[in-house]
């Protein structure tokens, strides 16, 4: 059986590391099913910028599809020109997507999120994902018990 920290998806504090109060607060809200409140606190502003490393790692693709349009400037891509490809597959001009990702971390078209360098935001996102997984686990458990 996994140990306590493993099961909770937590990492024990290193020697000398101070507890992250935001993380504790997030867990508290999660345990009381109060994510919407946390979301309201976070949702007041745009999500943080995409992390530098994630942006640097974006591949340059040469455009092959006909009639494809850059969703930021709305210009048609010229066949053979290079464009940045986001993990969701959407293509943008360099000059169109970089200013956006330096503001916020998601694809302007489908809102697929890139990682950020913002620890609080990442902690919040991780907790939210866990809460979702727990919900699914509980549902599966119920289904297996009653079907």
């Amino acid at each position: 059986m996994a140990d306590y920290f493993g099961e909770m998806g937590w990492t024990p504090l290193e020697d000398g590391q101070a507890p992250d109060h935001f993380l504790h607060f997030a867990r508290l809200l999660r345990d009381f099913n109060m994510f919407d409140e946390l979301n309201a606190m976070n949702g007041a502003k745009l999500a943080p910028p995409a992390s530098k490393s994630a942006v640097e790692a974006l591949p340059d693709e040469s455009v092959t599809a006909k009639d494809s349009q850059c969703p930021v400037c709305l210009k048609e891509h010229v066949q053979g020109e290079t464009a940045k490809k986001l993990p969701c597959g959407h293509l943008y001009h360099n000059d169109c997507i970089l200013p956006w990702l330096s503001k916020t971390n998601s694809c302007p078209l489908c809102r697929h999120e890139l990682p950020t360098d913002d620890e609080d935001y990442e902690a919040w996102r991780k907790e939210k994902k866990r809460a979702k997984e727990r919900e699914i686990d509980i549902e599966n458990l119920h289904n297996s018990m009653f079907s």
Binding site: G43, K45, P71, V72, C96, W100, P108, L109, R111
Partner: peptide
């Protein structure tokens, strides 16, 4: 309206 604030995305028109 959220899209005029924090839910704006550059692909919107």
């Amino acid at each position: 309206l959220d899209i005029l604030k924090d839910q704006w995305a550059a692909a919107m028109t």
